[in-house]
Structure formats: C-alpha cells, structure tokens
Design a protein around this nucleic acid. Structure first.
Lengths: 198, 198
DNA sequence: TTCATTTTGTTGAACGTGTATTCAATTTGA
DNA sequence: TCAAATTGAATACACGTTCAACAAAATGAA
C-alpha cells in the first residue's frame, strides 16, 4: 500500500468518467466498457472499487449532490446576512458551478429518472429536496406571514427544478442568467405581495 | 376485412400496455416481453404494427401529447373568454386528466429523459413546449406590458414543469390541487406586480 | 348452406447483439 | 519476494428482431 490515496484517486477517476459518458451517451448508453475506456482503466476495476455498475452510479449521484451542497455553502459565505440576500444566494448556487452547463442538466435529469426506480437514489434525492426546502423556509419566515412561508418555498423550489428541466431540453444554448433573474423576480414579487399591507 | 379497425385496436392495446409497464418498471425496465405480456399479445406483433420498439415508444409519446392537447381544448371550452380565466384554464389542464396521477408524472419524466437522446421524441417535445408558451403569451399580452410577457410565460411554464417533477418524486401522495393553486397565485401576483402603476 | 381457397392476422422459438460480471493471470511497487 | 492493484478474455444472461408456421376470417364456387 504505497499510497493510501490510490483508492480515492481511482474512485474519482471512475466517477469523472461516468459523468462524461452520461453527458455524451445518456444513462442508457453509459456502459461499463465506455466508462472504463474514458477513465483509462479496465472494466474489472469497477467491480473491484464499487461492487458493480449500480454502486458506481450511486456514488456518482452522491458526488453530484455533494458538489451542489458545496456550491450553496460557498455562495452563502460571501453574502450579507440578510434574509433576502440569503435567498438570492440559494438561487445563484442552484444555477452555478456544476449546474451551469446544459450537459450537467441532462445528467441530473437522467439521475432523477433513475431515482424513480431505485430506493437508494430516491433517498438521496429526498434528503437534498428537504434541505433546499427548509433552507428556503428559514429565510422566508423572516419576510412574510407564517402561513405563506411553505407555499412560497415550494413554488421557488418548483421554479428551480422547472428551469433545470428547460435547460436540459434547450440543447446547448442555455442561459442560466435568465433563469436566475426570473427566480429572483418571483421572490421579490412574493415578498412584496405578502407585505402589501404595510 | 370484417373490421377495418383491428389495427387501431391492437395499436391502442399495445400503447396502453406500454404506459402501464413504464409506470411500473420505468423506461429501462420496459421490455418488449413485458409489454407484450401485459397486452395479452405476442412479442412479434410489436414489429408488425410499429416496426419495432422505438416506433412503439414514439407512438406512445404521441398519444400522451394528444391527451394533454385534448385536456386543454376541453377545459378552454367551458370557461369565460377573459385572458385571466384562459390562463387559469391552461394551468388546470396541465394538471388534470392524464396528468393527475403520480404514475403519469413518472411516465412523462421517463419520456423527457429519453427525448434527450432521440431526435424524434425531442421534436415532439419541442412542439408541445412551443404551443404552451405561445398560448400563455397570447393571453398575458392583454394583461401586462409587452416586455414582461415572455419572461412571465417562461416562468409559468417552468413552474408547471417543476411541479410535475415534484409530483413524480413524491411517490403516490401528490396533490395537484395544491400545485394548481400555487401556479394561479403566481399568475395573479405577476399581473398585479406589472400593473401596480395604474 | 358447405367446403375449398385466399387473405389477413398472429404466434413464439431461434438467432444475433450487446452488456455486466467474474476471476485466473499479470503487473506494480515496497 | 510478497501483497496489493490491475487486467481483459471468458462467461452468462437479457433483450430486440426475425420469420416460418399457424389460426382466423373472408371470399367464392358448388
């Protein structure tokens, strides 16, 4: 065991190759052979480090989710600590980094679809969903009546998902800036509409 | 040729079976064998009537889109002819009928994902997308400044897609009524926000 | 009506392709 | 020299397609 990090390196190589291949060929076309080829390793290595194809796919989704999580943390750090600014940071994070390119949107969509029929992936998906929702709600609570908080958060979450979908569909020429702007416009509208009495 | 409708009957049998199997097993698990079994017919019949699996899948998506189209027309017919009411009817239509059940949402998601890597399905998807958008825009144009029309329509479309996604995820207990209400709330907020000067 | 003939509709076993997995052999590095 | 790491050909399985054979229905002649 020369380098104790060999395993981590190999695992990341395979995850990177998996993302690349899914982007190019879709979930169906992502075979062990192609992934191994793209990673410069052999087909046998997959079973060795991940126990099989399913394990590799789950690890890849876990990786994507952790990237998203990190984007949120990073963008939060550099913003003023007002509820509105925090909400805007969440929106930015959800369209930044890994999420920016149409390719990534496609990959997310592929994983979502796969999650429908895989309890493990579904569980990961749900955790992520709950985190986004409770994040949004904690800031909205400071900006509007309590009974408006949950519906507004659900609407924002639906908008984010919806724009991702459209990004995945629009084949290359996606404009995350526009999606971000529209989400932000909605947030301001919602804040204003629920404070109109003041 | 006693019944000239035999072909239509068989085609619909196979399409119905395809929907059922995709709901249960997902796109990946939808094999010719399972579909044929569910329809009570043999595997050979698929190639006979649809030329192959791909043809059956395309016909099934075409059928789903036509159902949606019909829902829109039906709900339009029984509403007052004001722009706002028409917009609400579009929202209702997109969450009614076939779209109501979580199962259908799963099937839609499966087709969307598949469309990423199939030009034919992508074309169908685009046509549907454009129809929804231009529909929304034609009514929004009567309710707000011209430069707000397109962004607002895109936001509504994203919300509808987003709620579909969440419906697909929420495994059974979906509440289309809530999604409809939230979409309608947004529409009224948007109308109000863009006419505040009056 | 009855039976033969043709046309149409249907079957499912056989085939070929593609893929995940396995594991004995090989290489690598300390 | 040994143990860890890696290979990739061999294996087994699942799936879509094909097509020769079969069944059903329609036609037409007696």
């Amino acid at each position: 065991m020369a380098r104790p990090g060999v395993e981590l390196i190999r695992r990341q190589q395979l995850i990177d190759a998996t993302l690349k291949i899914i982007e190019e060929y879709g979930f169906q076309g992502a075979t062990i052979g192609k992934i191994a080829g793209a990673s410069g390793l052999s087909v046998g290595i997959v079973s060795h480090y991940f126990g099989g194809k399913q394990g590799l796919l789950e690890a890849t989704m876990r990786y994507l989710l952790s990237c998203l999580q990190q984007d949120v943390s990073t963008l939060m750090a550099g913003r003023p600590n007002t509820p509105r600014e925090r909400l805007m940071a969440i929106v930015d994070a959800n369209f930044s980094g890994v999420q920016t390119h149409a390719q990534s949107a496609k990959t997310w969509l592929a994983f979502w679809t796969q999650a429908m029929h895989s309890p493990d992936l579904m569980r990961l998906q749900r955790i992520n969903e709950r985190r986004l929702l409770s994040n949004l709600m904690s800031y909205l609570r400071q900006l509007m009546p309590a009974d408006q908080v949950r519906p507004t958060a659900q609407t924002i979450a639906a908008m984010i998902d919806g724009f991702w979908l459209r990004a995945a569909m629009s084949e290359g020429r996606i404009e995350p800036g526009q999606a971000v702007a529209l989400c932000k416009t909605y947030i301001d509208q919602a804040i204003q509409a629920n404070n109109g009495a003041s």
